[in-house]
Amino acid sequence: MIGRFVVVGIGADGWDGLSGRARDELSGARVIYGSQRQLDLLPSGFAERRPWTSPMSAHLAEVLATDHRGDVHLLASGDPMFHGVGASVVRAVGAQRVHIIPTVSSVSLACARLGWDLTEVTVVTTVTRDVDSVLDAATDGRDLLILSCDRTTPAAVAKLLNDTGFGWSSMVVAEQLGGPAERLVRGLARTWDEPAGDDLNVIAVSCVGPRRSIAPGRPDDDYDHDGQITKAPIRALTVAALAPGHRQLLWDIGSGSGSVAIEWLRATPTGYAVAFERDTTRADRLTANARRHGVGRRLTVRGAAPEACTDAPVPDSVFIGGGLTETMLATVWHGLPADARLVVNAVTVENQSLLAEWYARQGGSLQRHSVETAAPLGSMTTWRPALPIVQWAVTKA
């Protein structure tokens, strides 16, 4: 009979911090996999210990793909289902073949030390993501708990915060939480000069800096662009029309500065986007914009549409903001799955007429938006109108 995978969470306090149930499982184990640091926390004298080889993901996949006669035990840090290996195991073999025994997570321990309400804290991981992803959550007054990749992460986070206006944010680096070598190091991001400490650390940040809303319509100056950018008021309307949702994928065609895709991603932290942009300079610029706004990990840049759409993952929503043609629109429409959302903005009379034709055939909503902005006129003030935008929004039946 094929056995189970038993995933046991272990903290820095090692064997002494495990429950009786966890100890019994490990005491009867035949083989235990884990990092060398985790395996060294176990007492000697039982089970065969197999440290993960590098890369761990490949070794784990090999172990999970093997038919084992009997249970196989895996060690994880803290709670295996909280940014841990437990979720990867369940995805690979199914919940029915996995038995999870958690212990207290590093995040819970950090909140206990700091007196923070865990329900009010935003958790960010840099274990599998770039440090830039911290900016996706940073805003004035928010408390962050950042799971570090290693001992270099605190200094990288401090530099990132200082470079983006959050230099006065307080930082606490909590090392080896729950263990005999536990240590808390405090300081400010702007003056952080602590030497690299332990690889096992969590960073607590109380953000002081700009208020960064997830609502669309951020100032145009927040983006590096060459003038080809969907202006803030129209961008807000566009992202709202796209209706971002949980774990959805957006195609942003003719992405330009990437502002629509970026604000769509900011509105749905579990979403992903594919930007299609034929101009390589603009593609580099939108990639930099995405990283600066903390969503670079969730955005992929491809070449020109519709050619580059052929083997792209199927979208839940599509925005066409540039390069609109009958061929492109037809290609995108026929490739859309049922219930997918399409939003198209047009400036020229020719493209607006094209949208009117498609609206007549496919339905949805067709709206004309015009924005005027106050501007100087001599010693007085007048209204300067922007070019009107026609927007077609439709959900495919």
Results as ranks from 00 to 15, higher is better:
P315S: 12
V295A: 05
L387R: 14
V205H: 04
R298W: 12
P43V: 06
R278H: 15
L114V: 04
T164N: 15
D140H: 14
S77I: 11
E307A: 12
G256E: 06
G11N: 07
L342Y: 06
A61R: 15
G45T: 04
C207P: 01
T126Y: 09
W358Q: 14
H246G: 02
S169D: 09
F46Y: 13
E182Q: 12
S133W: 02
A340V: 03
R235I: 11
L265T: 09
L160S: 09
E350L: 08
G94I: 06
N162W: 04
L200C: 04
W192D: 15
T373D: 04
A360T: 12
A204C: 06
I253D: 10
E62L: 05
T348C: 06
P51G: 12
T382K: 12
I100A: 01
I146W: 06
G141A: 09
A92M: 00
V205D: 11
A283D: 02
Q391R: 14
W333I: 08
Q248K: 14
S54C: 01
G335A: 13
W116E: 14
A155Y: 01
A273D: 04
R30T: 11
S105Q: 09
W264S: 09
V332Q: 04
N201H: 13
G296W: 02
G78I: 13
F5T: 08
G167M: 03
G3H: 10
E350K: 09
L114M: 15
P55N: 08
A375P: 01
P80C: 11
P210F: 11
R302M: 15
R113S: 12
W333R: 15
T66K: 15
V107L: 05
I203R: 10
A137I: 07
Q228V: 04
V344H: 07
R4C: 05
D279S: 10
R23H: 05
R129A: 10
E62A: 15
L177I: 05
E357Y: 00
T53F: 00
R91C: 06
I229V: 09
F166R: 00
T331W: 05
S379C: 02
D193K: 04
R186V: 10
R91F: 02
T331M: 06
D252Q: 14
P154M: 14
D252T: 13
I10R: 05
Q36C: 01
R113P: 01
R129D: 08
V89N: 00
